[in-house]
Simulated assay, not measured.
Amino acid sequence: MTHADWLRAVAQHQSVAHGAGHDHVPGSPHLRHAALHSRVVTACRSVVADVLRERGSCRVLEIGAGHGVFTDHLAALGAEVWVTEMSRASVDVLRSRFSGYERVHVVHDEDGTGVARGPEVDVVLYISVLHHIPDYLGAVTAVLDRVAPGGAFVSFQDPLWYPRRSRTSLLADRGAYLLWRLTRGNLRRGVASMVRRARGAYDLNNPSDTVEYHVVRDGVDEQALMAVLEPRFATVDLHRYWSTQARWLQWLGERIAPANTFGVVATGGRP
């Protein structure tokens, strides 16, 4: 699966499925579970509020904003926000939702990486996005050139790199995924997806194999991401946690399951 193949497939799937009326919540733990949602909101609001206190204004680049759930919080703080989406359908939703907000600018980002040219910003946000991007390290490296000195980088809700995780962590993660599929009435889809992943035979016509690109290259390498960020920021904090779709499995996993997901907050951008 080449990058170009992936790009065309993802753009097609998202344009069909992610328009008005699409509900991101059931398959998005950071939207579905209050504790996870609060974790992301708190991190975003904290870095933006810090910039606002220091400078009196804050310019935010939110990459892959979906339907703007987190954009609302940024705009409420008084930040000027550029939100990007590769899905034309999602762009239409965002433009309608924020039509009355002069400080929210919606950008159609055709390759989904957010590295297209634009203004210098104080904060970059990737919320549940990096695992969709084939060359996520290259995308982050490029977009950091747009971060002003003293700025920040926030990314949350990406799967930890599989080869570094324990067998227990991987089994708990996959078991929770299949149980969630069972409660949704589409266990067969989940099993078929896992079989294709085990065989390395991906179907460009199936959103499970294209949109969730992390399965192609074993998650997101959190240490490699830290290595990109550390030379550029004074402080880089890694947050590991448990995340899954089903509510009761989230409650149970938070208490007994090993971490399978991570977030990064980097502050004090260097010139």
Rank of each mutant, 00 (worst) to 15 (best):
V106S: 01
L204Y: 02
R174P: 01
V124W: 04
H22E: 09
R184D: 00
L94D: 03
D173S: 14
L225G: 06
S15T: 14
E85Y: 04
L77H: 00
L52H: 04
Y126G: 01
A17R: 15
A152D: 11
Y202W: 14
A76V: 01
V140K: 06
I256L: 15
Y241T: 03
V143G: 05
V236T: 12
A148I: 10
C44K: 06
Y136C: 03
E80T: 15
R181L: 01
G200S: 09
V47H: 09
G185Y: 02
G175L: 13
M1I: 10
Y202N: 00
T113L: 03
E222F: 02
Y177E: 13
T113P: 00
L182P: 02
F233Y: 07
L61F: 02
S28P: 01
T113R: 13
R164M: 03
D209G: 08
H30V: 09
I63P: 05
M1R: 09
W82R: 09
P163E: 10
L160M: 13
H33I: 02
L74I: 03
G269P: 11
R247W: 12
G138N: 05
G68D: 09
Y136G: 00
H13E: 01
T84E: 01
R59N: 11
A34V: 15
V106K: 06
P271M: 09
D145I: 01
V236E: 10
E120R: 15
P207C: 08
R59T: 14
N205L: 15
E110C: 09
S193A: 11
G100M: 06
P149R: 11
A266M: 07
V264W: 06
R217L: 10
T261Q: 11
S99H: 12
G253C: 07
L204H: 04
R247I: 05
H22P: 03
M226N: 11
Y177T: 05
D221C: 08
R232M: 08
L171K: 11
A9Y: 01
A142D: 15
L7K: 13
L229M: 10
V154P: 00
V10A: 13
A234H: 10
E254W: 15
S243D: 01
Q223N: 11
R240N: 09
T2K: 14
T42E: 12
